[in-house]
Structure formats: structure tokens, C-alpha cells
């Protein structure tokens, strides 16, 4: 039994290596963005360590930098992270029903798109030991990459730093465009959300709405329209 737990743990570690490598590079850019916008490096690392997410922490951090209200920061981040409820739910179907609440709560911290995706490919139940092994390297990669990126920015010349402002949006585009190629509904979601966002931004009537609320309005309206027009097939999430 003990060796079984060890095997599960080292299998998890091994499966976490590619996720970790992917995280290092993205986190590096996140660290750059934070320092570029005047946040101390240790705050950047603290954000990565306590949040362990991409889009949500980018958005939340952007709002902190812009001086947004706490409620705005909370709701924006929460809306972006709502998708984790689906993943968390899927994982709950693949763990031992007797798994204790503290173990479940520890595993919950590591539910990211990538860790979820890899863990769901595992045959049979997802064990606590496997999931802990799977989480460790990505967490280290995400925090460590942030640290290196945050420290590196001060070494860069000004004209490079001015160009870095676009990096975060480049990453967002790299997340949304590839699935839009294969799924027409996602392409429509991007088109609708982009249109609503621009209308809210440019039409003077909506000037009083701050950035965080614009995102929330945009997300709720667009997702509702898409959910009505293109409902996802049943059971798709479980096999994805």
C-alpha cells in the first residue's frame, strides 16, 4: 500500500513536468507585467502563489494596477474562474467517495485548466497522492517563473519595456483564437463579446461604467446568448 502511494505520487510528479514547463514561460511574462506596472516583485510572486491561475489573476492584477474597487476585483476574478466549478465538479466524480474533506480541500487548490486536463486522462480513480504529485511542479514553475520575470524587467531598456505592454493581450488572443478555429460557437462568442465591449467603451452613454463591470456585463450577456443559441452537447464536458 505504501509503495502504491509512492508510485501514484511519482506518476503525478512525472505528469506535472510538461505543465510546469508551460507555466514557467507564461508566469515569466506575468512577472514582467507586474513589475512593468510598478508592483513590487514579491507581490507578483504572492499573487502567483495564492492564485495559481492565468486569466483570473491577470484580470485581477490589471484592476489592482488601475485602482479598481475591491468588489469589482472580486466579481471580475470570480466570473473568470467560474469555469473551475465545472472542472472541480468533474474531478469530484473521479475521486474515492470516502476521500476526506481536508484532502478534497487541498486538491481543490490545484484545479487549473491544465492540471484538470491531465488528471482527467488518468484511468480509474484520481488518488490524493497522484493529484498532490501532479500539483507540485506546476505550482513551483508558476511562482518561480513569476519571480524571474519580475526581477528581469529592471534589467531591460525603456524601449523594450514600452513594447511589453501588449504581451498580456497577445496571451489572451493565443488562448481564445485556436479553439475558435474549430468551434464556430466560440468564434461567435468572440465576435459578440468584442462588439459589446467596444460599444460599452466608445459610446458616451456608458462612460460611467468602469472596466471591471464592463467585463462582467459583457461576459454575462454574451455567455447567455451563446448558451441559448449553441448549447453544449450533453456529456461533452466529461469527455473533454
Amino acid at each position: 500500500m505504501v509503495s502504491n502511494i509512492k508510485d501514484e505520487f511519482s506518476n503525478g510528479l512525472r505528469d506535472g513536468i510538461p505543465i510546469c514547463l508551460g507555466y514557467v514561460s507564461v508566469a515569466f511574462t506575468f512577472g514582467l507585467m507586474c513589475t512593468e506596472n510598478g508592483l513590487p516583485f514579491w507581490i507578483a510572486v504572492l499573487i502567483s502563489l495564492t492564485n495559481l491561475t492565468s486569466a483570473g489573476q491577470f484580470a485581477g492584477t490589471a484592476l489592482i494596477i488601475a485602482g479598481g474597487g475591491l468588489l469589482e476585483i472580486g466579481i471580475t476574478t470570480f466570473v473568470i474562474n467560474l469555469r473551475y466549478m465545472l472542472m472541480s465538479l468533474s474531478i469530484s466524480q473521479k475521486v474515492d467517495a470516502n476521500l476526506s474533506v481536508p484532502k478534497r480541500m487541498a486538491m481543490s487548490f490545484g484545479v487549473t485548466d491544465e492540471i484538470f486536463g491531465v488528471s482527467m486522462q488518468k484511468k480509474g480513480n484520481i488518488t490524493f497522492a497522484y493529484f498532490m504529485g501532479l500539483m507540485i511542479l506546476p505550482i513551483l514553475g508558476w511562482s518561480g517563473g513569476t519571480l524571474v520575470g519580475a526581477v528581469a524587467v529592471s534589467l531591460l531598456p525603456d524601449m523594450v519595456r514600452s513594447a511589453l505592454g501588449i504581451a498580456i493581450y497577445g496571451m489572451f488572443l493565443a488562448i481564445i483564437i485556436p479553439p475558435a478555429r474549430t468551434e464556430r460557437a466560440i468564434a461567435w462568442v468572440i465576435a459578440i463579446a468584442g462588439l459589446i465591449s467596444c460599444v460599452l467603451y466608445y459610446v458616451p452613454l456608458f462612460n460611467s461604467i468602469s472596466g471591471g463591470w464592463m467585463i462582467i456585463i459583457c461576459a454575462v450577456v454574451t455567455s447567455s446568448i451563446a448558451a441559448i443559441l449553441w448549447p453544449v452537447p450533453d456529456e461533452e464536458e466529461a469527455s473533454a
Partner: peptide
Amino acid sequence: PLTFMRRKITNRFVKSFLYYTPYAVLTAMT
């Protein structure tokens, strides 16, 4: 969900809404 829920979401609208949300949010931010 992982800690407290033992049943799957069956409401198709909610599932679809959650599926599209990240794309809408990232687009609105960009």
C-alpha cells in the same frame, strides 16, 4: 464542487454558460 457536491450539473443552460464564459471574458479584456 469537489469538496461538497456529489452530483453532476444537469442544467444544460448553466453548463453552456460556464463553457463560453472564459472566451467572453478574455475577449472583453482584450
